[in-house]
Amino acid sequence: MTAASATVLITHPTGLHARPAVKLTKLAKTFEAAIRLRPDGQEGWIDAKSIVKVMGLKLRSGSRLELAAEGVDAPDAVAQLRALVERNFDENV
């Protein structure tokens, strides 16, 4: 089983709000790997493929998000999700 993880800084000014949450979830769902998220320093993980749980994170700009994936495409999943966050979810901000 391949595993990968990363921590990424949320730089989008509005944080992980509704539209970015949809984008992140949609991207996560394209991978076979199980993908978990949690705000840096917190205990509980949530499923990155659950739109309701991702929106429920309510992460603000400046907070850090941990990504962890397990499965054949885990490294690619983490790399692409991290890149999406770093690109401010492809929104012009």
């Binding site: 509704a18 949809v22 979830t25 949609k26 769902k29 394209t30 309701v52």
Partner: peptide, 12 residues
């Protein structure tokens, strides 16, 4: 509607 559409768009 937003949540259902997000899930649907993934082919669920």
């Amino acid at each position: 509607a937003v949540v259902a559409a997000t899930e649907a768009s993934a082919g669920s």
